[in-house]
Design a protein around this nucleic acid. Structure first.
Lengths: 368, 368
DNA sequence: TTTAGCACTCTATAAGAGTGAGTGCTAACA
DNA sequence: TGTTAGCACTCACTCTTATAGAGTGCTAAA
């Protein structure tokens, strides 16, 4: 039995009704609130069919129906109308991103937070990593008489820095020398090639000031490993409490503890299949691998940094979420992020560098 | 009527019983579980007295007693035995701090997280600030062809850095020149003296490459303001869910939203009275100014960075918390932090710089 | 001053009755 | 053949009532 138009309309009505009220939808309310001009009895018959086909489930005999995962899936794939964001909403989202043209991880974190504020859903973001990026440069800067900053940049454009406080003063010359040594020995290697052993080798090979050098090398190693770490940000996790489906303390505990443990989110992201550019993926209820998410849905998309790297941004919410709106939102944000970040790293000018250009940019006589 | 020894013993028994079980304590259980050798009736009489004196309250006529804020206060001030941490616990806390000898804010954040893991309580930490620190130095580093890092250090030893990605390549010479200008114009001033106006002045005074310069100056300003911001970290907030007093969704929402909004925590900290070195302060229930904390307790202490700066670390929990243990823990951690951080900034050697010295330190022929 | 005894209070839990939303089925209708 | 009206039935939810149990306060005796 295929889904005829009437069944589709009824299914859509049920899904949307359930999304709105978080309560099982009965035949009568559909008869009333749609323009199908059918009696409740007819709709009941259709609902019976839809349930048999697996699109609906009934919590108990005398309740209305709620969509199954399959029902939501069909809705998302075939019934949902593309939500067109209002200019107001677009404005709001844009304004969030304008000021954030700094370190990559901060951007992702801030954008996640902002997005969470807009959708009222917990939002996660992940900074991209590549397996085989190579070290591009290492700088040692004397910040203070006894403080060194180690800055490592890699071929993908990511930059990490670490502070090192020493017991004794360091000579600027020693630093320059050390910088040279480091660059000679480490630049061009992939990050995975630079493990502690390799670094110890470098120490051994050179007799010079081993105390400082070994500390520095340790930091360099730390910075390199941090580039590799797939840092995951989760913002607005308490938003989940707004939903009536989380009216049970046990459930709240479970999901918040799940959120607290960011490794698990990393796992979610790690298992992701390939995605096309700009694609928005939806995982509904038990489609999720992780048991903690079986009664939630995840909507996510990727964004590009430069031409190779892909990061991820997405939201987690109850299966009953406003997919149309959320999918548009996630799509919009990932596209904006791509634009913002790829533009930057490839050299195209970001949309606006100064938050307040009329104050300063105008006075410049050289800037284009 | 003063508190005689017997009343004290009974009060202590009630407080400790309530701390353990989160349930009103009845006369019978005290008669049984203490070695007072008194009948329940006698204890009932005493409890009546204690209630009259304001140390106990009764949720309803046929329930046991629970300590009032005043009761807890008396317990904390006079009855509580100093908890001596086991060597195991000390080990555990120490080990947490060993690896963390990096940027100040990271240290505080990580230590808070670790402490929260140990106490199972939400833990907050605040990095110190001083009003009148002056700018000590500004460095501009060319990290990448088009990426500049701005590093600002201030007289208190705090360091902030920012990344700036440009559209065009920058010359190393230009940077050097710019660094000079910046240092000439900004070093020695207090942070509050350096507002955007002053910075714009600098731009105007110098014609050179205003686009980059203005971006850089903006970042410098941002970094300076960030030093000023009293950054508050809160870790392990979901620990609060472990307590049976949070068995009400409304309460959970309230406290988690309170935690989410870090400004409010900042307020808590801002209103703090002067504290002696190493002192641990306890705010019980309605002793707290903030309405959201009226049914919670806060235990906090200060730590020193260098000789002037004081930061704060503490925990939030239900009034019924194990004060003895928590007070020791907070005291221990704040002392350790002081040792670690003041040692560092004053030049005394940190306890251990390399996590694994046997591997490298031993091979050095110069290090002491 | 302490204790045993007892009536009393109040919560928490369970059981029972009533209500209402919603269904499934049947039979009549277009 | 598809649609609709009608009706009995189911089940969650709410409200009420009964019961058990923990703990108290008071009184009178030791």
């Amino acid at each position: 039995m295929a889904l005829d138009d009437r069944k589709k309309s009824i299914l859509r009505a049920i899904v949307e009704g359930y999304i709105q009220n978080a309560e099982p939808v009965g035949s009568r309310s559909i008869a009333k609130n749609t323009d199908l001009n059918l009696s409740a009895a007819t709709i009941r018959n259709e609902m019976g069919d839809l349930e048999e086909m697996g699109f609906l489930v009934q919590p108990h005999t005398s309740a209305g129906r709620i969509p199954s995962s399959q029902g939501f899936r069909f809705y998302v794939d075939s019934l949902m109308e593309r939500y067109r964001m209002t200019t107001g909403e677009i404005q709001q989202m844009r304004s969030v991103m304008l000021h954030k043209i700094r370190e990559l991880d901060k951007i992702v974190k801030d954008v996640s937070a902002a997005f969470s504020g807009i959708t009222n859903l917990p939002t996660f973001g992940m900074v991209p990593t590549i397996e085989y990026g190579t070290i591009k440069g290492i700088k040692l800067v004397l910040v203070d008489e006894k403080t060194i900053m180690v800055i490592v940049s890699d071929s993908s454009g990511l930059i990490k820095n670490k502070l090192l406080r020493l017991r004794e003063r360091v000579d600027e010359e020693v630093l320059t020398q050390m910088t040279e040594i480091l660059n000679q020995n480490l630049v061009g290697y992939t990050r995975s090639e630079i493990n502690l052993n390799r670094i110890i080798e470098v120490v051994n090979a050179l007799g010079c000031n081993p105390e400082i050098l070994s500390s520095v090398l340790e930091l360099v190693h730390e910075a390199i490993s941090e580039i590799d770490k797939r840092e995951v940000y989760l913002e607005g996790s308490t938003n989940i409490l707004r939903f009536p489906e989380y009216n049970d303390i046990q459930k709240i505990k479970e999901i918040l503890e799940f959120f607290d443990n960011k490794q698990s989110l990393g796992k979610l992201i790690g298992d992701l299949p390939e995605m096309k550019d700009g694609e928005v993926k939806v995982f509904i209820g038990d489609e999720n691998e992780l048991p903690e998410l079986k009664s939630n849905s995840v909507v996510l998309s990727t964004y590009k940094v430069g031409s190779d790297l892909t990061g991820i941004i997405g939201v987690v919410g109850p299966t009953r979420m406003d997919y149309a709106k959320v999918v548009s939102g996630v799509g919009f944000f990932s596209k904006q992020l791509s634009k913002m970040l790829s533009g930057r790293l490839e050299g195209a000018p970001p949309e606006r560098l100064n938050p307040n250009p009329s104050n300063k940019g105008d006075e410049s006589n050289e800037a284009r």
